[in-house]
Write a protein that binds this DNA or RNA. Sequence first.
DNA 1: CCCAAGAATTTACGCATGTAAATATTATGC
DNA 2: GCATAATATTTACATGCGTAAATTCTTGGG
Lengths: 353, 353
Amino acid sequence: MDTPDTPHVNKERIDTMEHLSAAIGVSRPTLSRYFQDPDNVSRTSRERIRKGLERVEYVPNFFATRMNRKSTGMIGVIIPYLNDLFFSRLLEAIERAAMDVGYTVITQCSHSDPAIEARAAETLMSMNVEGALVAPLGNHSDLDVHERLRSRLPFVMVDSRPDTMPEVDFVGTNHYHSTGLATEYLARVGGPPVFLAMPRVNFNAMERERAYIAKMEQLGLEPRIVGVEGVSGAGYFEAHGQAVLEREFSSGRLVASSILCVNDRVAIGALRAAATHGLEAGAMQRGGLRIAGHDDYPLCPYTVPSLTTVAQNVDAIGRTAVARLVESIRAEKSSGKQILKLFDGEMKIRESA
Amino acid sequence: MDTPDTPHVNKERIDTMEHLSAAIGVSRPTLSRYFQDPDNVSRTSRERIRKGLERVEYVPNFFATRMNRKSTGMIGVIIPYLNDLFFSRLLEAIERAAMDVGYTVITQCSHSDPAIEARAAETLMSMNVEGALVAPLGNHSDLDVHERLRSRLPFVMVDSRPDTMPEVDFVGTNHYHSTGLATEYLARVGGPPVFLAMPRVNFNAMERERAYIAKMEQLGLEPRIVGVEGVSGAGYFEAHGQAVLEREFSSGRLVASSILCVNDRVAIGALRAAATHGLEAGAMQRGGLRIAGHDDYPLCPYTVPSLTTVAQNVDAIGRTAVARLVESIRAEKSSGKQILKLFDGEMKIRESA
DNA sequence: CCCAAGAATTTACGCATGTAAATATTATGC
DNA sequence: GCATAATATTTACATGCGTAAATTCTTGGG
C-alpha cells in the first residue's frame, strides 16, 4: 500500500496546451480540437494524445476555453433557497435535463435575499450564459433584475412568477387545477375546507389562495382563510403552520375542520400542532379533522399520519423549462411568441385526509 | 406603467472594457483596477466611472477576469447530494463562511455517482480554485480522485472521510462522542439500545456503528445491530428505516426496545413503521418503545412524536472547514501539520425517547 | 512514378482582461 | 511660482485557448 506521501498519481503536471503539445508531439490546435471532441482529429492523433495523457496530468483551463468559444454551452439557474426539498428536486430535474441536451448548468442560490439574487443575475450575465432559468423569490425580488436578464438573453421563469410579468415565458404548475383538486376533494370527503395560508409574499402561495377562493365559490361554499399574518421566510414554513393552528386549536376552533395547507411544509407544522392537542387528522379518525398539503414533499409518505397532498410534476417542469430555454437559445432571433406551460397536479391520497 | 416592450433598463450595452473606456473617458487599466476594488482609483476617477456606469450597461467578463488574476478567489466544494437537508445546511454554512472571508464558492454535486464526483474534481481543477472542500460519497468514491485533488491544492474533507486517508485534514463530528451520548442516554432511560444501521457504504454510518459498539461494551452491554443489509442510496434513507422495522415489528421483535437510528432520516422511517404497527415511541408512552436519531434534521421538532436526536454542530463545521482551508491557502507552503477538528454532538431530547 | 483531391496540421491572429513598468498629471510645501 | 513627491494613467506585454486561413501530408487513381 502507498504511504501518505506517495499518492497514486504523481504524473508530470502540465498546465498549458502549449507545453502539452511539446510533451506529446501534437500541435496545439490539434489538441484544442481533441478536447472539444476527440472525434475531430484523426485516429492516429487521437491515439497519440490518449497515450500521452496517461503519462502527464493536464486539464484544459476552464476559463480560457469558455472565454474563447463562440458559445459557452452554459445555462444559468437561480433558485430562492436550497434548504427545501422541493427546490432540490427541481434543481436536480433541471440539471439532468440540461446534461442530456449537452448544457452545463451554473446554479446560483438567492438565500432569500434580493441583493444576492441581483448579484447572481450579474454573475450569470458576466459568464455569458446562453440562457437563464429563474425561480423568483417572491414579492421581495427586484423586478428590474429579472427584466434586465430577460432583455439580454433567453429567459424562462420556473415554479412561480410575478403578476407584473404576465408576458414572460413560464413553466410551472396550474394551481387553479391542483389547488382546485385538493379543495374539491376535501369538500367532498369532509366539511368545507379552510385554507391555511401564508403571509402574502410568495407568488405561488398567493395564487393557491386565489385558486382556493375560486374553487370554493364555484362549489357554492364560503371560503375561509387563516394564517396570512405573521412573519415568513424559507426557514419558517413548518413553524408558521404549527403556530397558526396552535392558536386556533387552543381556542377550540378548527378542531373538526378540513384544512388545506398552502404547502406540505406548512402542513407538517399543522400535523404537529394537531398531535400536540391530542388530535389526529385523517379519514379514518373520529373527530373529523382533515389536513392536506400541496407539493408532495418527499417526506409526505413518512409523516404520522401520512400526508394527503397534491403532487407537482417536478420532473416535467424541469425538463420542459430546459427544453423551452434551449429552443429559444437555438432560435437566436427571439420568436416573440410567449410560452406558458402549466402542468396539472395529481392527488396523492394518504391518511391525513 | 411600462409596456412589455420597454423594459425599465435599456441603457446602451457595452461588452468590453475597451469600449467602456472610450465611452466614459477613463483608461482601460484604470477601469480594471476600479472593478477589482473601487478604492484603488482616485476619488475623481471613481466618481467619473460611477456616473458612467449609470448611463451604460456593462459587467466585466467573468472568465477573462478569472483567467488573468493571480488568484481566482474561489474555493471548490463537492457534496454528495442535494436532496438532503443536512447537506443543504452544511452548504449554506460553508457559503456564508466563505463569503465572509472574501471567497466565492463553486459548488459541485456528485448526485451519488462516483463518475460525476470525478468530473466535478476535474472541473474544479480546471477552474484553478485555490482550495477544495469535499464531502465524499462513501465507499463508492474513487479515492484516486481525492488523492489527486489533495496533491494539487489545499484540501479539506468535511462531514466524513475514508479510513484510507487518515492523514487528510478533516472537519466533522466526533461520532464516538455524539453516538456515545445517544447510546448512553437510551441505555439509561430505556433498555439497552439496538442500533438501526445502514448498508456499510457510508463512512459516517460505519463510524457511528463502531461508536455504538464501543459504547455498549464500555457499558457492559451486548451490542445488537439491525439493518446492515439492503440497498442504500441517498433517496432511500427513510424507506430503509421503515422497511427494516416493518420486518422486525411484524415478527413481534423490537416492539418494546430502545432503537438508535444511524441518522434522522432513517429514524423518520422508523417512526413511520412504528405508527403503522400501532406503536408510538416515547418516554411518556407505555410499551417501552424508544426511537432516537442523529443529526438534528430540521424536521425533528415537527415529527409525531418529535424526534430525540443528537445535533451536529453544522455551523461550526462549515466555518471551521472554510477557516482551515483558507489558512492553508494563505500558508502557501503546506505546513505539513495535519488538522483534525471534531465537534461534539449535543443531545436534543424530545418526545420519541 | 506522378499528380490531384482530400484530410490533417500548422500558422497567425483574436479574445477580454490583469499587471508591471514607464510616463504623465496633480498636489504639496515653501 | 517652482521643485518634488505622490498619485494616476498609459504603454506594453502576458494569459490560455478558439478558429479561420494557409500549409503540409496522405491517399488513390492513372
